[in-house]
Simulated assay, not measured.
Amino acid sequence: MKKRTGQTAIRLGMTFTAAMAIATQADATAGMFALGFSTNQRAMGGAGVAYGFESMSAAINPANAANVGHEFQLGVDIFSPRRGFQTGANPRVKSGSNYFPVPNISYNKPLANGNVLNISAYGNGGMNTDYPANLFGAGSPTGIDLSQLFISATYAGKSGNLSWGIGPTVVVQTFKADGLPFGAGRDWSYGGGIRAGIVYQASPNLSLGLSGSSKMYMSKFDKYTNLFEDNGDLDIPASIT
């Protein structure tokens, strides 16, 4: 019973640490999902779901691939959140990791039948904290590192004013926690799901888009069965934009 209580306390503590990482990402993300996966898409604040003008547009809505010609795109974002926390009258503790490169690459190829094939690989941000503090009595620093890579193969087409797209997606994610009593090191998880979307061109100046993703079913983090529920399970939830 004591062991289970200790594990629960650690889970709650790491949830607090994760919350400190997520809180400052609110302006750039929708929960754990980015508002876009290229510099242009992020600048549009999520409106790119209904407007495709570059190869990476398929990452936010697979239907966008149908409205882009033959194109290769390569880019990288620099994500720079500032995280920290304060307890009581103690000095504020700041995370030591402040700059994160988020790469993306995409290739859009029109096919002979009039449809389009798009291959895109992109990082879904990440969540890295590195606090110079001994929060759980297991040494310093304390923090977590979660990164996710999505690889989508999208098939898209267009019928009149309606564009559609569907993309089976493979996901690789990695996780590491420091400062825990059961320091397990870096672990990897693999899985996938499917993404789909539509775009309707209502007028020359108005387009409407809808994009959705199934739950991404991931293998378990075997080194962190004591941290995550269901013995290390960290699936990526379904989403609709």
Rank of each mutant, 00 (worst) to 15 (best):
L162Q: 02
G139L: 05
I119A: 11
I119V: 15
T174L: 02
F175L: 08
G157A: 12
G114S: 15
T129F: 08
G125H: 07
T129E: 12
N113G: 01
Y155G: 03
L162V: 07
A112P: 00
L117H: 12
P168K: 06
S163C: 03
G167C: 02
G167A: 15
L149Y: 01
L117V: 14
G137S: 12
M127A: 10
N113Q: 05
I166F: 06
Y122F: 14
G114R: 08
N118D: 08
T142D: 03
N118S: 11
V172F: 14
S152D: 12
S152L: 00
P141T: 11
N124K: 01
G143P: 00
G126Q: 11
S120I: 13
L149W: 07
G137D: 10
T129A: 08
I144N: 14
L162G: 01
L135Y: 11
S147H: 15
A133M: 04
Q173W: 13
N161W: 03
D145E: 15
L149H: 00
S163R: 00
T169A: 09
G114A: 12
V170C: 07
F150W: 09
P132K: 09
W164Q: 06
A153H: 12
A133I: 11
G165T: 03
L135R: 09
G165F: 07
Q173A: 14
S140W: 08
I166Y: 09
A153I: 08
G167T: 04
F136N: 04
S120N: 11
S163W: 00
I144G: 15
L117T: 10
V116W: 00
F150T: 04
S140Y: 06
G126A: 08
A156M: 01
G160A: 02
N134C: 01
G139V: 04
N124S: 13
A138D: 01
S147D: 14
G123Y: 09
N118L: 07
P132H: 09
S163A: 13
A138K: 03
L135N: 07
F175S: 09
A112V: 11
V170D: 05
N115C: 00
P141R: 12
N134D: 15
A153P: 07
G139E: 00
G139A: 03
N124M: 05
G137P: 07
I166G: 10
I119K: 12
N161I: 02
G167H: 06
T174Q: 07
G165D: 03
A121F: 06
S152F: 06
T142P: 02
T169E: 06
A121Y: 09
G137T: 13
Q173N: 14
F175N: 12
I144S: 14
Q148N: 07
T129H: 08
T174N: 10
A121D: 08
T129W: 08
I144A: 14
N134R: 02
W164Y: 15
F136E: 06
T142M: 01
A153E: 03
Q148H: 02
A121N: 06
A153C: 07
P132S: 09
I119L: 14
A138M: 04
S152P: 03
S163L: 01
M127W: 10
